[in-house]
Simulated assay, not measured.
Amino acid sequence: MRRAGFVVAAAATLTLGMTGTGRAVTNASADITASWGDRVRLAYTWTDRHTIRNGTLTVTDTTCDDRAVYATLTITTGDGRTVPLGDRHNTGGCGTSAEYHDITAADAGGITRLTLTICHGAGGTCEARYVGANPYRLDSLPS
Results as ranks from 00 to 15, higher is better:
Ser140Thr: 14
Thr45Gly: 01
Thr33Ser: 13
Ala108Arg: 10
Thr21Lys: 08
Arg49Glu: 05
Gly110Thr: 00
Gly93Arg: 03
Leu116Tyr: 04
Tyr44Leu: 10
Thr58Pro: 04
Thr91Glu: 10
Arg49Tyr: 10
Thr96Ser: 11
Ile52Glu: 07
Gly37Trp: 07
Asn54Gln: 13
Arg129Val: 15
Gly20Ala: 12
Ala133Met: 10
Glu99Asn: 07
Gly5Leu: 02
Arg49Met: 08
Ala105Val: 02
Leu116Arg: 00
Val59Ala: 03
Trp46Leu: 07
Gly17Tyr: 09
Leu138Pro: 02
Asp31Asn: 12
Gly37Leu: 05
Leu138His: 07
Arg129Glu: 15
Ser35Lys: 09
Val25Lys: 12
Cys119Trp: 09
Tyr136Cys: 00
Thr58Met: 11
Thr125Phe: 14
Val7Asn: 11
Ile111Asn: 00
Asp65Asn: 14
Ala24His: 13
Ala105Trp: 04
Arg23Ala: 14
Thr19Val: 00
Gly86Asp: 06
Ala28Thr: 12
Leu42Thr: 05
Asp31Gly: 03
Leu16Ile: 09
Ser35Ala: 13
Asp139Leu: 10
Ala9Leu: 15
Leu138Cys: 06
Ala108Ser: 15
Thr112Glu: 14
Asp139Ala: 10
Met18Ser: 12
Gly37Thr: 03
Gly110Phe: 02
Thr33Tyr: 05
Asp31Met: 07
Ala133Tyr: 12
Thr51Ala: 09
Ala133Cys: 00
Asp38Ala: 10
Glu127Ala: 08
Leu42Met: 09
Thr125Cys: 05
Asp61Met: 06
Tyr100Trp: 12
Asp87Asn: 15
Thr15Tyr: 04
Thr26Ala: 13
Ala43Asn: 10
Pro142Ile: 09
Ala34Ser: 14
Asp66Asn: 15
Met18Pro: 01
Asn54Cys: 03
Met18Trp: 11
Met18Tyr: 13
Val83Gln: 04
Ala43Pro: 02
Val59Phe: 07
Cys64Ser: 13
Asp79Thr: 15
Thr26Val: 15
Arg137Tyr: 08
Gly20Phe: 06
Ile103Val: 15
Ala108His: 07
Val7Glu: 11
Ile103Asn: 02
Asn54Phe: 08
Trp36Asp: 08
Thr63Leu: 10
Arg23Cys: 06
His50Tyr: 11
Gly86Thr: 09
Tyr130Ala: 14
Gly92Val: 01
Thr51Met: 07
Ile118Gln: 05
Gly110Glu: 01
Trp36Tyr: 09
Asp38Gln: 06
Thr77Val: 03
Pro84Asp: 05
Gly80Pro: 07
His120Glu: 13
Glu99Arg: 14
Ala11Thr: 12
Thr96Gln: 04
Thr58Tyr: 08
Arg41Lys: 15
Cys119Lys: 04
Val25Arg: 11
Leu16Asn: 11
Trp46Phe: 14
Leu116Ala: 10
Thr21Leu: 12
Ala10Ile: 02
Gly124Gln: 07
Arg88Tyr: 14
Ser29Asn: 14
Asp102Leu: 04
Val8Thr: 10
Thr77Met: 03
Pro84Glu: 02
Asp48Asn: 15
Cys126Asp: 04
Thr77Ala: 00
Ser97Met: 01
Gly95Asn: 08
Gly121Pro: 01
Ala12Gln: 15
Asn134Arg: 01
Thr115Pro: 01
Met18Asp: 12
Ile111Asp: 01
Glu127Val: 00
Gly109His: 02
